[in-house]
Write a protein that binds this DNA or RNA. Structure first.
Lengths: 339, 339
DNA sequence: TTGAAAGCGTTACCAC
DNA sequence: GTGGTAACGCTTTCAA
């Protein structure tokens, strides 16, 4: 393994000079620089990132903490992050989270500048104690799709998103609108689903419609679970004419349930989802689009700016817009169509 | 930042002793060990991975090189890798590849033990020169869904997979069977699609069926592209009664094309895919299932075993089984159904 | 403008 | 068993 000393020797200079050339430091004469560059070329020298990191106190690495990274929405955010890191000198280290214990382990490990220079946390409100330690350790952190006091974040207005979806159904003439969302006791403190439900309730109440307990169902964030919950809704005496699912994954579960109950979508049942993941266009799903890619991209850029600029990260909230995408799963209710 | 020296001081021992305790080395008395452990606890000491890596010559990191990591099949393999790494001390560093240049940059950077202790490469045959350098640098490498001479790998028999899919259609009575696969000039040297096509051709020829040029289409590995190609097939004078797509993503494109041409699946057109990704069950797609999760898991385990056991990695091929999953998109051809 | 040398935090070897 | 100390490869400060 060729080291900086080897380069220094072949170039006939000191190691310090090589380092200066390597890092584009000013004070080095053109001729010396050329000689060093030639030696680097000749020996195919590449600096050892570990040694560099040890000396510098940083490791050119960004940690990404993400619950259930295989979920389509998470993958899309990751894509944005990867795109942002593409031309930076930072490597991406992935920390998948599948349980609160798991989450705590990762945060614990990441509470040091020598593990990652900065942290990007997706959809996960960090527990206050971890946050305090992270801050004390001086690890910059940016939240995407989550908020915490004093921490910069990239978010959308989920309450408004819930309103948008519900208003759409209402405007089509629906009054029996059900909701399927995440179970509140998920242990992670995810809030998106609950906030979308909040918007749903607001709009219904404003329209003078009582939110029926039986029309609101919660379960794990999975297609099969959502399909089961939808099945319960579809067997109700007064069947809803529309369902707002708090994610597209869950919405496709509703679609599957409708199919297996012999109901046509949208004629017999309208369905609105949330996210606009890749499958949604394919399924013709009407949904509330949030800029998933952008959220990752902006979060990463924000972090990189702070890291590269050396400026302390600003605790700003970056809001991303939501947009209703009307496709084929919503229409007006059939008059008198009641089970 | 508390260092090993601080721990040594509070425990009243030397740094070497603390290190021995940290790494479960034998020669240290129970009482000393207890004192050191107490000091570690008290100071909340955590070893600096950078310093550790520099001293040890490794960095407790596994590099994963993956083209188009957002593709469902890649995500599923990654899930297997993450699962395998879960209880190891290794971090996962993600290197996404979207172009050959990109690929070369990554391999270039990874040709040193100080970047990653081992490499997992998905679906990508490493160029021989990079492979040689990697070997010279002593970086262990495991290929998943790709092969290279002398490199351990986890693979399936794609040719046989092509046969399985084609035999299924043949056994249903189809004779006009089309194929949609990846463009051969992808620049990465991906071989899966071509090998599946090979199996398709073998079976057809064995059945005395000529493989028509017009029935075989190639394009980028994307749903929309596959849909376009399928559209061309469906407008042929002698329309195929079945399509074998070399991946489920492409198969869903075929499904979409059939839909937009007013054809019913499977009555008017049978469709078989390959992979069995999450969307496939939802779409009711008949497909050749390959163990994506397992491939990642096994590849990672193989690499970890070599790394942890210190044994040189064996250049073995690990073969994973394929399985036909019959769902709702295949049936026998309608008699005399010709466009 | 440059070289020498002192860190950075560990591990591992060598005495004791 | 244990402490001291030399690596590990880089950056940076201090003189010259």
């Amino acid at each position: 393994m060729v080291t900086i000393a080897d380069v220094a020797a072949t170039a006939g200079v000191g190691a310090g000079t090589v380092s200066r050339v390597l890092n584009d430091r000013p004070k080095v004469s053109p001729s010396t620089r050329a000689r060093v560059l030639a030696a680097i070329e000749e020996l195919e020298y590449r600096p050892n990132p570990l040694a560099r990191g040890l000396s510098l106190g940083r490791c050119q690495t960004l940690g990404v903490v993400v619950p259930f990274f295989t979920h389509a929405s998470a993958v899309e955010r990751l894509r944005g992050i990867v795109a942002a890191l593409r031309d930076s000198r930072y490597d991406l280290v992935l920390f998948n989270v599948e349980s609160p214990v798991h989450r705590d382990e990762h945060f614990e490990a990441l509470t040091r500048r020598d593990r990652a220079d900065g942290l990007l946390v997706l959809s996960l409100p960090p527990p206050p104690d971890h946050l305090a330690r992270l801050r004390a350790a001086g690890v910059p952190i940016v939240l995407v799709d989550a908020t915490a006091p004093g921490v910069p974040c990239v978010v959308t207005d989920d309450v408004e998103g819930g309103r948008i979806a519900t208003r759409h159904l209402l405007s089509l003439g629906h009054r029996d609108i059900a909701f399927i969302g995440d179970s509140t006791a998920n242990g992670f403190g995810f809030t998106s689903s609950a906030r979308r439900e909040e918007g749903y309730g607001q709009v219904l109440r404003a329209a003078g419609i009582r939110v029926r307990r039986s029309y609101v169902r919660h379960g794990a964030h999975e297609r099969d679970v959502a399909a089961r919950l939808a099945g319960q809704l579809l067997r109700l005496r007064v069947r809803p004419t529309a369902v707002f699912a708090s994610s597209d994954v869950q919405a496709t579960g509703v679609l599957a349930a409708a199919r297996s109950h012999g109901l046509r979508v949208p004629e017999d049942l309208s369905v609105v989802g949330f996210d606009d993941i890749e499958i949604s266009a394919y399924a013709g799903l009407t949904t509330v689009r949030q800029p998933l890619f952008d959220s990752g991209y902006l979060g990463a850029r924000h972090l990189l700016d702070a890291l590269e600029g050396g400026t302390p990260i600003m605790a700003a909230e970056h809001h991303l817009p939501l947009e209703l995408v009307v496709r084929l799963t919503t229409t007006k209710p059939r008059s008198g169509a009641r089970g």
